[in-house]
Design a protein around this nucleic acid. Structure first.
Lengths: 110, 110
DNA sequence: CGGCATCCTACAAGATACTG
DNA sequence: CAGTATCTTGTAGGATGCCG
């Protein structure tokens, strides 16, 4: 309640919002997390669920997210290959963000 | 609970997440909303509260947000000039987004 | 099927200087 | 103080083609 009075000043890199945006701020990042959601989904299905994304961006972001520990990747040594993606615990923690984005879009944008 | 089964497929422009990202997806946009927050803040103070932003980007995003109806701008015809920015109702609705971003950053990033 | 390697460009973003 | 006006640049992102 006295939150209005505190100085909200985060010097550069210590701001949690900035740190989050640094990882999740890509054009497609949050959309990908949103589509994976609680599912275990194959690469091809994921790609189809995000119309307009290029293979490069999808793979790039997925690798990025796997490295960062937000997405788990499981590859089956079959032919033809099958690769499944899902959110880790850490990745699930980002779902409130996309939920609030979705809610905002529904209520405030045409 | 059967949410896992439904096809989460938004064809392009109807996806609320995409619509939100289209407006709020800029590098500085959410950070600006976060800093204004519930305050009525002058341009100079706002700029100082976001280290690293250029005047151009700040003004550009502010104008953008004013046009979109998320930010209110009040200019006083004084010398030297004074301009105050604050969030509109609509802009307040975006605060849950930055809150979840902040929470995510605090809990999941170093 | 699920990638990776290139090449390329448009636009977001930065730097700088000036003004009411 | 609060902007505007240019000019320049970096890089996110797109297009295309090949590979295990």
């Amino acid at each position: 309640m006295e939150k209005n009075n505190i100085q909200i000043r985060q010097s550069d890199e210590h701001c949690p919002v900035r740190k989050s945006l640094a990882i999740l701020g890509g054009k497609w990042t949050l959309l990908i997390l949103f589509q994976i959601n609680k599912r275990i989904i194959r690469y091809g299905d994921l790609k189809r669920s995000i119309p307009g994304i290029s293979e490069k961006m999808l793979i790039q972001e997925l690798n990025h997210l796997v490295e960062a520990g937000f997405v788990a990747k499981k590859a089956y040594p079959e032919i033809p290959p099958r690769v499944e993606y899902s959110l880790t615990e850490k990745g699930m923690n980002a779902l409130p963000i996309v939920d609030s984005l979705a809610a905002f879009g529904l209520e405030n944008l045409s």
